[in-house]
């Protein structure tokens, strides 16, 4: 048989525990010593720009200007890339079309166009030529110049006299 004192202690304890549990669940207060994490997320379409020179060196602190398709004259967004040449922005997906992104530092840079539709951004772009492609192109052009030099260097061949 539970006495009135025991019963009231149980009720008080249960009330305190329930209040603490509700408080923890609603306010997300971590227990002391627990490795609590708070990871929020939201779904958004973002554009990740990685700006680098063709030598592979990042365009540190390059200035980035983004133009929306609906108003290509007025910048939608301006910012500065980080020291690794990285810049991330979130375009307005209601503004469908080609978004122009200008990246510039020290008189070097480029303007790229990124197609944006209602729910996606078309693929990844850029990259340029591989080193092998560069070497092949350079070799072909050099051979063209060498050929030109040899052609003009060559002395005219005298026709052989049959007699």
């Amino acid at each position: 048989m539970i006495s009135w004192r025991q019963s009231s202690t149980i009720w008080v304890l249960a009330t305190v525990l329930t209040t603490a549990l509700v408080w923890f669940l609603t306010e997300n207060v971590p227990f002391a010593g627990a490795h609590g994490t708070a990871i929020d997320y939201s779904l958004a379409v973002t554009v990740d720009i990685q700006a680098a020179y063709d030598s592979g060196e990042p365009m540190s602190e390059a200035q980035v200007t983004v133009y929306a398709p609906s108003d290509p004259e007025t910048p939608f967004l301006q910012g500065i890339a980080d020291e690794n040449g990285r810049f991330i922005f979130e375009p307005d997906t209601n503004d469908v079309g080609l978004w122009s992104v200008s990246v510039r530092t020290a008189g070097h840079g480029e303007i790229i166009n990124i197609p944006v539709s209602q729910d996606e951004i078309s693929g990844a772009g850029g990259g340029g030529l591989s080193n092998l492609q560069r070497m092949v192109i350079a070799a072909a052009v050099i051979w063209g110049f060498v050929g030109t030099a040899l052609y003009y260097q060559a002395k005219p061949v005298k026709p052989k006299n049959d007699e």
């Binding site: 050099i142 110049f145 060498v146 030109t148 030099a149 040899l150 003009y152």
Partner: peptide, 8 residues
């Protein structure tokens, strides 16, 4: 020839 090689 000289110009071609230097252009290369």
């Amino acid at each position: 020839p000289k110009a071609a090689l230097l252009t290369a």
